[in-house]
Design a binder for these strands. Sequence first.
DNA 1: ACGGAATATAACGGTGACCGTACTATCGAC
DNA 2: GTCGATAGTACGGTCACCGTTATATTCCGT
Lengths: 121, 121
Amino acid sequence: MQEPTFLILTALAAQPLHGYGVIRAVDELSAGEVKLRPGTLYGALDRLAEQGLVTVDREEAVEGRLRRYYRLSDTGAAALQVQIERLRRHATAAEIQLGKRLGGALTFGTASALTFGTVTG
Amino acid sequence: MQEPTFLILTALAAQPLHGYGVIRAVDELSAGEVKLRPGTLYGALDRLAEQGLVTVDREEAVEGRLRRYYRLSDTGAAALQVQIERLRRHATAAEIQLGKRLGGALTFGTASALTFGTVTG
DNA sequence: ACGGAATATAACGGTGACCGTACTATCGAC
DNA sequence: GTCGATAGTACGGTCACCGTTATATTCCGT
């Protein structure tokens, strides 16, 4: 699962949103770092719906315009939880490896990772 | 940056490795979850070298066979640090969003994310 | 001595997620 | 009336990654 997909699931975790709402939520969640393009969003939404990670919550007709709300399914919430743990493990593992780094310019703050203790297993 | 690329940088953070050494290191770092294919590895290594994130450390001729060692550059270490922080932010943001989730099956343990405090900004 | 597994690197085509852009359409602001 | 924001659809392109194959050597068991 890639970053945009992960952030789409994250955006839908709190409450159902329609497409454009997801674009705004991801923008906010990532502090403006990730601006979803329509092509990325609707492609990902279709794939996630196919996989059962999101479902169509309802379709509202607002002034002649269709507004389709997507909801994170229980399966999707579980998948997101798995991804969260994956990211955490990778971040910790990388920080520990960086702490072992010799010869390079020492980056301050990385040593704090050592206080986490063992990571293997 | 995708997962395999991130793990290759992580593997090279502690010490220079040759191709096959990276494959084994990533396997260990991910607890057997990620098995790098040669195509993935050497493609990524070429791209990372082009971007200056890794450099060729040395080339050993071990009984006729070339063994090329790759090293994480200072730029690469900085890039890895940026990615680590990115993963941490996303993991925390997602956990907080999941904590707001209503109606779905409550996953025990997710509430602990709330103790982290604010995440926006 | 021979075959097979592990070590080690290179090269190929295929897939799919993502991007960029354009198009349609409504509404409010200027 | 045009611009920008909202809202969704469609399409072609790119690139990272994957699966596989090829090639060569070393180590081990038989």
